[in-house]
Design a protein around this nucleic acid. Structure first.
Length: 749
DNA sequence: AGCACGCCGACT
DNA sequence: GTCGGCGTGCTC
């Protein structure tokens, strides 16, 4: 029953005694791929997972004990003693520590950096793990008079008073989150003498949880999914919840979460970076009266540490966050949910290049708990796994309510004339939907006004000085911006080559916005992309206007697809489906299909039938015809067959060795040397492809190249890497480049 | 990554 | 004379 054993000092003394050894192996935040041995301080409880202050070179740093050791290979003249142990209990429980060291090994990343990345910033610099908790409660005066005396218009103050009537006491963060109030509201109540703070007496009791509101009745598929997942609570199982948009995946999550909470366990929910919307959190809060810890990029250091502590001490019953939340400590883990599991943001793209989705499976397996991967467009990896174990596949094929699936049609851009990228039949369809009172959404995966600035006279086009890329025309034709390095310059008055007039070529969101305004003068519209939604809260504001019906036409990028509902949208237009149709990256078709299906899923959610138009120059392309005739499932079947035949994941494992330098030849030379070195480590089935320049060789002034390693499965890949990688730093060329290894690389660029 | 040591160029 | 450029070496 170790799963239910609290990992704090009071209740689990045996954890502290096993490592009473003379030496400690300590992981330190440094790119060095090793741990460092220290003499353990005497007469202090210390062991694996504890943080210690240690001397390191000329510095004093925080390290994490990875294990206790009875002996050390380090010569006595080098060995030093740890200064002090930071807490009276380990920062990392044995199972979390084991997961992290496993991940460091698997992704070939220095263990010190891995452990550091799993800690809130304040813990990295030595803040204590436990703190006397400051709680707020109503004063006697507050209990008697607050609700009676507070004016009705003081909504926040009354909400806080009501909350504290129900909860007796709670930390400020919890109160402010639940009532969506600023901290000034609490101070205001304190000045009125209605509330007071006090230090919590030390107790590990976990607040009771109740269901605030019962959920709606489930349809047959949802009920089957809930039951299938519930049956596996307490054991490892990897579920795929494969539900089309609007089929009620969240309701399935909620029902299963309810069971987990009833078992006294915690739920960890991972969501993609952009989709950490108030919508989902709102659903959770509306359903359960359970403390929720939200880990997102907007938190400051103190808030982050508080959320981390709440997860670790079991106070937070639901922990919801993005990628890095997979490393949240949990006292009583019971379930992990990965929402929109296909989303690329679960894979970290620099430094410690882990996949939170893959680690969720590892963590769940180690803990003996189920994991639920939810998506309308599952990754091929997840689909392949589900094929092997059909008992864990739950399909939600119909939309909740009476909504019918949208009608999808292709618009052949070669046959029809187009104004600014919008084909004539598309214009007519938009008009028809506007006339019928519908809302229209146009999707284009490109920011800015136009992707190219071109001189029709001499053929010149605007290139970035530091990247092998065109500059994008921005701000209605006033600026040139590089989307790869961020450099910016004013638009030249004419061609710098021949002084002729230059012309923006192609369409971005800004230009589509302009075209729509000209074509549909009376329809109020909005544009949603990274440039137009810079200000905080702007996105939410615009989305609200859309859903109130004040906006009739919506133009935007990927941003539109991530987790937002647009119940009044009846027509979705994918303006250019062709980017990615002929990419060198074997995953490009998968990403394109997911994007198209996700965008299309925004149409017709209520009782109105939805319509989807996909503009393309290649209407006969098999990817598009498959999607059109058989939906995502048919596409995925086809793609899986292709991957199997060509030996790509999930039917193989890959790793990518990347190198970059300001010198053009150095990365290629280094990779060639690395390639040549590999003949000394033959592992059956392991093949090296390359080296080759990266698809965009020069980026931000650095030349980049890559070498692909392909193996039939996980273990030969790891076997090869463990023999080969340690020797790379010894190559003379290694010092002239920056290199990194990306295990299970998601993007080959 | 830090951080120090170390050996050559233009400044008060 | 010395401030500082970044090459190279080390961190239990």
């Amino acid at each position: 029953m170790s799963r239910f054993t609290p990992n704090n000092a009071q209740s689990c003394p045996q954890v502290l005694c096993i490592d009473r050894t003379p030496y400690l192996a300590v992981a330190i935040d440094t790119p060095l791929r090793q741990v460092f041995d220290y003499r353990a301080p005497a007469d202090v409880t210390v062991g694996a997972g504890f943080r210690v202050w240690v001397p390191f070179g000329r510095r004093r740093v925080v390290g994490v004990v990875v294990e206790g050791r009875d002996q050390t290979e380090v010569p006595a003249n080098k060995l030093r003693a740890a200064f002090e142990v930071i807490d009276s209990e380990p920062t990392f429980s044995p199972d979390l520590l084991a997961l992290l060291t496993w991940a460091a090994e698997y992704y070939r990343h220095p263990v010190g950096e891995v452990l550091t990345s799993a800690m809130p910033v304040l813990l990295r610099s030595g803040a204590p793990i436990r703190e006397e908790q400051i709680l707020w409660r109503l004063t006697a005066l507050g209990r008697e008079e607050a609700l009676a005396k507070l004016p009705a218009r003081s909504i926040r103050l009354r909400a806080i008073a009501e909350y504290l009537t129900k909860h007796e006491h709670a930390p400020a963060s919890e109160i402010l989150n639940a009532t969506e109030s600023p901290s000034s509201a609490l101070r205001n109540l304190e000045e009125r003498g209605f509330v007071e703070q006090f230090a919590r007496e030390k107790t590990d009791e976990i607040p009771p949880v109740s269901v605030v509101r019962e959920g709606p009745p489930l349809n047959e598929a949802q009920a089957a999914a809930v039951e299938r997942i519930q049956k596996t609570l307490g054991t490892f199982a990897s579920h795929l919840l494969y539900g089309v948009t609007g089929s009620g995946k969240t309701e399935v999550y909620l029902q299963v979460i309810e069971s987990v909470l009833a078992r006294g366990q915690q739920v960890l929910v991972l969501v993609p970076e952009i989709a950490l919307t108030p919508q989902l959190i709102g659903r959770f809060r509306g359903r359960f009266d359970a403390p929720l810890a939200v880990l997102h990029s907007g938190l400051n250091d103190t808030e982050r540490l508080a959320a981390w502590r709440d997860a670790r001490e079991g106070t937070a019953r639901i922990v919801i966050g993005t990628r890095s939340a997979i490393f949240s400590p949990l006292l009583h883990p019971g379930l992990i949910i990965i929402d929109e599991e296909h989303d690329g943001s679960f894979k970290q793209q620099d430094g410690f290049r882990y996949s939170a989705r893959d680690l969720a499976l590892v963590r769940a397996q180690r803990l003996g708990i189920p994991v639920v991967l939810g998506s309308a467009t599952p990754s091929l990896e997840t689909l392949a796994r589900a094929r092997k174990q059909p008992e864990t596949l739950s399909h939600l094929p119909y939309r909740a309510g009476s909504a019918r699936p949208p009608q999808v049609a292709l618009v052949d851009l070669r046959k029809h004339g187009a104004t600014q990228g919008i084909a004539t039949p598309t214009v007519m369809t938009i008009q028809r939907h506007l006339d019928a009172g519908g809302q229209v959404m146009l999707f284009i995966n490109r920011r800015g006004y136009a992707p190219v600035l071109f001189c029709p006279n001499c053929g010149w086009s605007a290139h970035c000085r530091r990247c092998d890329a065109h500059l994008t025309v921005h701000a209605r034709g006033r600026d040139l911006v590089c989307h790869h390095c961020g450099s910016q310059e004013p638009l030249p008055p004419g061609c710098p080559n021949c002084f002729a007039d230059v012309k923006p070529v192609g369409q971005g969101t800004e230009r589509i916005e302009e075209a729509i305004q000209q074509l549909f003068t009376n329809a109020p519209m909005a544009r949603i992309d990274r440039d137009s939604m810079r200000r905080k809260g702007e996105l939410e504001e615009t989305l609200a206007r859309v859903n109130r019906g004040e906006i009739r036409i919506l133009v935007g990028t990927q941003m539109l697809t991530k987790g937002h509902d647009f119940p009044k949208v009846t027509l979705v237009v994918v303006l250019n489906a062709d980017q990615g149709l002929f990419s060198t990256d074997f995953r490009a078709p998968e990403r394109l299909a997911q994007t198209i299906v996700q965008v299309a899923g925004r149409a017709g959610r209520a009782d109105r039938p939805g319509e989807v138009l996909i503009q393309t120059e290649y209407p006969e392309h098999p990817l598009l015809t498959l999607l059109l005739t058989g939906g995502y499932a048919a596409f995925a079947e086809g793609a899986l067959t292709e991957r199997e035949q060509s030996g790509w994941p999930p039917f193989a494992r890959i790793a990518l060795l990347r190198a970059e330098a300001t010198d053009q030849q150095a990365p290629l030379k280094f990779l060639q040397d690395a390639h040549d070195l590999a003949v000394d480590f033959p592992v059956r089935g392991v093949k090296l492809l390359g080296p080759a320049p990266a698809p965009m060789e020069r980026r931000a002034g650095r030349f980049r190249a890559q070498l692909l390693i392909r193996a039939p499965s996980h273990s030969p890949l790891q076997k090869f890497l463990s023999g080969w990688l340690p020797l790379l730093p010894m190559l003379p060329e290694a010092r002239r480049v920056r290199w990194s290894i990306d295990v299970d690389a998601a993007e080959l660029s």
